[in-house]
Amino acid sequence: MDNAIIVRDITKVFRIGHNRQIVALDNVSFEVKEGEFFGLLGPNGAGKTTLTKIISTLLIPDSGEVLVNGYSIYKEPMKVRQSIGWMQGETGGRALYWRLSGYDNLKYFATLQGVNSKVAEIRIKTFLKFLDLDKDAYRLVKDYSTGMKIKLLLIRALLHNPSILILDEPTVGLDVASAIKIREFLRELNEELNKTILFTSHNMTEVEQLCDRIAIINKGKIIFVGSARQMKEKVEKVKVVSLKVRMNGKTENELVSSLMKMNSVEKILSKRNDEGIYEFRIAVRDPYETIPELVTKLKDWKIEAIERSLPTLEEAFIRILGGDYIE
């Protein structure tokens, strides 16, 4: 699989006043593969927006190189722009002409993207219908809800059929239903239309649901690149198995004693009784040994669920940011 985006040793320093400077990006390198859904995570001010703007040709780095579909942001910015659909973040639906209708906004940007009028007409109508905006297409954008504006921004980014989408917090400020709709749409674009998506978000559930790989950026440096699972495993200090058992007339002590007799069980970390169903979090040496052993040894018990318990993505993110993980 080829790389859709290659970021190599990018450094960007902003000068503030005469003698202050902020290192926004410090030797940042990573790749995004073709057809990949790639998440860029980081706290506010970490450098995410700076990075997406560099990839989108809006900002020139001090050093390093970025290739988008093989085109250099320095030498062929127009080809880079043709390859990407960019949706800026933190707009809450700004970045549109509020005194134009949704349809006219899209028509204007289709023209700027160089899309033939006839083609633009078909694409605009298809996308508006797909995202349930067709009935409001001719209303002025000033009368749109935030969700409708975000949908419009997304459609705008797609009009010229870019192979790569760069989306800066596309679901921020949306209600649950609209966020779900946008997520479904993004997944469809990625899975069915093979669009490469570079995506920034603070919503960990969303990132976990959508992204194939994640990069974490903090203070201008990439500190992690990998899948959500790898991210969780990286911060896992103790291997934990979670067990849910219905007591079925037996006592808690009987269960604890059975567990402690097992070879791979090290310690019971916590237990919780939820209306007759006990949930145990057990520290183990190797979860892949423990789980079959539990199934065998507890065959007389009513096991509700048994699984390897990893930290949440949120916990993993916080620990990686704090440097609290095992290299």
Partner: peptide
């Protein structure tokens, strides 16, 4: 729905060229 999207993209393939006509079209846009 997805096929509609695919179709909408397929339809325009190869039409976006950087011609003078397109530049004028953009200016008037």
């Amino acid at each position: 729905n997805t096929e509609n999207l695919l179709d909408a993209f397929r339809y325009g393939r190869g039409l976006e060229k950087q011609s003078l006509k397109l530049k004028i079209h953009r200016v008037f846009g």
